[in-house]
Design a protein around this nucleic acid. Sequence first.
DNA 1: TTAAATGCAAATTTTTTGCGTGATG
DNA 2: CATCACGCAAAAAATTTGCATTTAA
Lengths: 155, 155
Amino acid sequence: MAMSPDTQERLEEMRSALVQRGVVITPKRAKVLEILAGSDDHPNVGDLHAEVQRWHPSTSLATVYNTIELLKETGQVLELEFSASANRYDGRRPDSHPHLVCVECQRIDDLDVPESKGMFEAIGAETGYEVVRQRLDYYGICPNCQKKREARLSR
Amino acid sequence: MAMSPDTQERLEEMRSALVQRGVVITPKRAKVLEILAGSDDHPNVGDLHAEVQRWHPSTSLATVYNTIELLKETGQVLELEFSASANRYDGRRPDSHPHLVCVECQRIDDLDVPESKGMFEAIGAETGYEVVRQRLDYYGICPNCQKKREARLSR
DNA sequence: TTAAATGCAAATTTTTTGCGTGATG
DNA sequence: CATCACGCAAAAAATTTGCATTTAA
């Protein structure tokens, strides 16, 4: 499987962040990193576990959670919390940035709008909060689900 | 207990939305609505349950969840999902609007920035999504927790 | 009297934790 | 041999569900 240059780069960033923190990159952990660096579909823990197991069948869920925890601590993954379902993870862009969430198929796309630190300061000045991060999600129906809906209606 | 005019108004909106939907406003449900209409601290289900029980001791958690579900369906409450802890509810402003979340004490404040429908359309035009709602949360340390932290450091 | 509301407890789902085994340097 | 990784299973925590009973139009 070929790996794109930016996936490769992202992977290296993750690895060195963990190494710098003093953790050992075991084969199982390496696979979690590799999947996260190469996925643009925001996998959840179950997805990651299943995929790691294809290569290392004895992998437990605890190991996946453990690896994600390490990545969170080092700022190498962005966790998208959903109480109604499993959390999703963005390993390609670990900084906070906007997402598009399809309320029908749960697909999640990245939105290319950079977060504005200026806004953090403005809000801080107004409210007294020391703002460190944001979460901006837009919820809607993705193009695919719109098509399906139309097909359903025209029947 | 006196009720401010806008709490009263909010309460009426909730009640009529539910009545219109054909559900009965029982005393327990009425109390849930009253608490939501009058709280600016974004209570969670446990908070609501405890408060309702002060008036109707036999109230079960299921009833609180059931009432919230009805309010969600009628667009009368905004649910703030947190996977790491219980969800929080905003009954005063059921439309999606930005929040300030203190990562230390879990306090949640409203931010007075209206949501821009124009942005929904712009994103739709660019991505093909049909955007219907957004979630914008800023995470940081509230003024109170900042003070506590300073006090701790200067000791 | 009939449908909706409710309490209670069990079930579900996701995530975390404790503990013992095993790999590694 | 000491530390960290890891599997396993149990524990936690939040929410949902099934079912029997009560309430209320």
